[in-house]
Amino acid sequence: MTFRDALALGMAREMEADPSVFVFGLDVPDHKRIFGSTRDLVEKFGPSRCFGTPLCEDALTGIALGAAISGLRPVLVHIRADFLLLTMNQIGNMISCLRYMSGGKVKVPLVIRAIIGRGWGQSAQHSKSLHGMFAHFPGLKVALPSRPQDAYSLMRAAVRDDNPVMIFEHRWLYDVSGVVDEKVKVELGKASVIRKGAALTVAGVSWMNVEAMKAAEVLARRGVELEIVDVRSVAPFDEETLIRSVERTGHCIVADYDWVHAGFSGEIATRINYRCFGKLKKPVERLGFRHTPCPSTRTLENLFYPSAIDIIRTAEKMLGLSETDLAGEEFFSYEKNFKGPF
């Protein structure tokens, strides 16, 4: 099952289970169905439970909150994470803190889905991830599935959660296929070891797990085994799973999908330094976007984004290895698959 189908299935199962769940946002029921991720929902559940809206993201976010504190379970969808910036007031001043300010009297069960764009000239306004910024707010849960099973299971967990949950979905993950077992439950706030290895730990966020798997495949050919921890949830953050891994490998690269400066990768690195101080063989390395707005043209875009190559080179440096000959390896293959226009 593809990642996009897993998202749709996760929502459909929750909508079947609970009539108070509804899905809304700009263009949610049109024929493109948010890149297929809301497929069949309007047919199955009707236009009162799956509907499009005017362009009014700020209001929609407040409306979701109002519905959530009135007994419903809204799922609000944004086709780009960048549009969340229009909704910061409701998220930062209301959604994240309403329960706290009510002295625990209100529940805020709502889900906000946002897609991270990349490639084909998405450029500065259609490519942000922003998960680190939202993780900064107490009272918000923030998840980034990278595999179809997690897309399905975390979607279900998010809808069932009595707290606001934001789910960030990388556009390129939509085409990734994998086995989805409908019975598998995944708790919010747990990392997952998606590859075992003894040499070095890569903590991957969202798309960077795909890059990390590619890097691991290349390095495995020379006997260097990477361990990959899919962070999956940046708030709450599952420190223990990562610490256990780094304690064994003594090396860690944090591969975030965001700017490095003042980003979530710094949070992880700090925690590892604190907990694994005596066991680290090298300082924790961080990978992320270059510190510029995202450029449009592909030649610069490929320099802007961290890739499997950066993971390989950083791992070699940390482990004191010579550079692997990468001629003949295929990188950036997803860029070749994704042919816009959006």
């Binding site: 362009l55 549009f83 450029s123 500065a124 306004q125 450029p295 449009s296």
Partner: peptide
């Protein structure tokens, strides 16, 4: 835009086109 803008953000401040944006 030196290749940094793309179709959605064409600008020409010297000709009076001060800003365009892909966010509605």
């Amino acid at each position: 835009g030196g290749g940094k803008a793309g179709s959605m953000h064409l600008m020409a401040p010297d000709r009076g086109l001060m800003a365009t944006s892909a966010v509605v």
